[in-house]
C-alpha cells in the first residue's frame, strides 16, 4: 500500500514538474521571435506608446518590483510582530485569535481585498493626500495584507518547531521565554525567515487583481510612492485585447518571461539557502 502511494506521489510530482517545464518552454518559445528582432531593444526602454510604435516594458518591471518591495517591508513587519506576539504571549485567547486571523486572511480571495480597499482605503488615503488615490502606496499596503499569511505561517512553523525541541531545555536552564525567543529562536531561524520572505515576494510579484485595481496603471515612470504605476501582471491583463499579430501583443510574452524568470530565480535562491544546525 505504501509502495503504491509513494509511486503515485512520484508520478504526480513528475507530471507537475513536466507541466511547469512546459509552461516555461512555451513562454520562451513564444518569446524567441522577439530575440531575433531588431526591435528587441525597443522592449527594454521606459516608454510604452502603441501609437508611436514604442513598446518599452521596463517601467512595468520597475512597477512590479517597487510595489512588491514596499509590500514586503510592510508585510514582514506585521508578520514578524504577529508571530512574535503569538510566541511570547501567555494568553491562550490572544494566541488563538491571532492564529485564526492569519489563517482566515489566507482564505480571502485577492479580489475581495482589492474591492474592499477601493471603497474603504482609497477614500481614506485621498483624504490625507488628494493626489494619490490609486497609487503605489495603496497597492503596496493592500498587497502586504495578501502576503502576511504566507510569511506568518512559515515563521510560526519554525518558531514552533524550535520551541518544541529546545524550550523545555532552556527553561530548565532558567532562561526566560523572552531570552529564549530573542537570543535563540530568531538567531537560529534566519534561514527560514529568509525563505518566507522570498516566497512572499514570489506571491507579491505574481498578483494581478490588487495591482490592476489599486495601482492606477499609469504608463509614466513613477517618481514617488504616491504616483500611479503599472506592473507586468496588470500590463498583461490590459493589453491582452490587442491584435494577435501586433507588437503590443508580443510584448505580453516578454512580460510573462520576465515574471517567470524572476520567480524562478527567487525559488532557486530559496532552495540554495541551506538550513543551519541549531546552536546557542
Amino acid at each position: 500500500m505504501n509502495n503504491i502511494f509513494s509511486k503515485g506521489l512520484l508520478i504526480i510530482t513528475l507530471i507537475s514538474s513536466f507541466l511547469v517545464f512546459c509552461i516555461f518552454f512555451i513562454i520562451f518559445y513564444l518569446c524567441i521571435d522577439l530575440f531575433s528582432l531588431d526591435e528587441l531593444k525597443s522592449f527594454f526602454s521606459f516608454t510604452w506608446s502603441v501609437q508611436d510604435n514604442k513598446y518599452g516594458i521596463l517601467t512595468f518591471l520597475f512597477g512590479s518590483f517597487i510595489i512588491s518591495f514596499l509590500a514586503l517591508i510592510l508585510g514582514f513587519v506585521f508578520s514578524f510582530s504577529i508571530c512574535s506576539i503569538i510566541f511570547l504571549t501567555n494568553s491562550s485567547l490572544i494566541k488563538f485569535f491571532l492564529e485564526k486571523t492569519v489563517l482566515m486572511m489566507a482564505t480571502i480571495p485577492t479580489v475581495i481585498y482589492a474591492f474592499s480597499a477601493l471603497f474603504i482605503f482609497v477614500p481614506f488615503i485621498s483624504y490625507f493626500k488628494p493626489s494619490s488615490t490609486l497609487s503605489i502606496i495603496v497597492a503596496s499596503v493592500v498587497l502586504s495584507l495578501l502576503i502576511i499569511p504566507t510569511m506568518s505561517l512559515i515563521f510560526l512553523n519554525i518558531f514552533n518547531s524550535l520551541s518544541k525541541k529546545y524550550m523545555k531545555c532552556c527553561m530548565n536552564l532558567s532562561i526566560s521565554k523572552e531570552e529564549f525567543f530573542f537570543k535563540f529562536v530568531i538567531k537560529n531561524s534566519i534561514t527560514q525567515l529568509s525563505q518566507g520572505v522570498l516566497l512572499a515576494t514570489t506571491r507579491a510579484l505574481g498578483d494581478t487583481m490588487i495591482v490592476l485595481m489599486l495601482a492606477g496603471n499609469a504608463l509614466a515612470f513613477p517618481t514617488s510612492i504616491f504616483d500611479s504605476t503599472r506592473s507586468l501582471t496588470s500590463h498583461i491583463a490590459l493589453i491582452f485585447a490587442n491584435d494577435f499579430e501586433s507588437m503590443a501583443f508580443k510584448a505580453i510574452f516578454l512580460c510573462a518571461f520576465l515574471l517567470l524568470s524572476s520567480n524562478f530565480i527567487l525559488i532557486l535562491i530559496i532552495r540554495k539557502i541551506k538550513g543551519k544546525t541549531y546552536e546557542v
Partner: peptide, 9 residues
C-alpha cells in the same frame, strides 16, 4: 492623452 492618467478597465 497623458501617460500619467490612471487606467481603469
Amino acid at each position: 492623452i497623458s501617460n500619467k492618467a490612471r487606467v481603469v478597465s
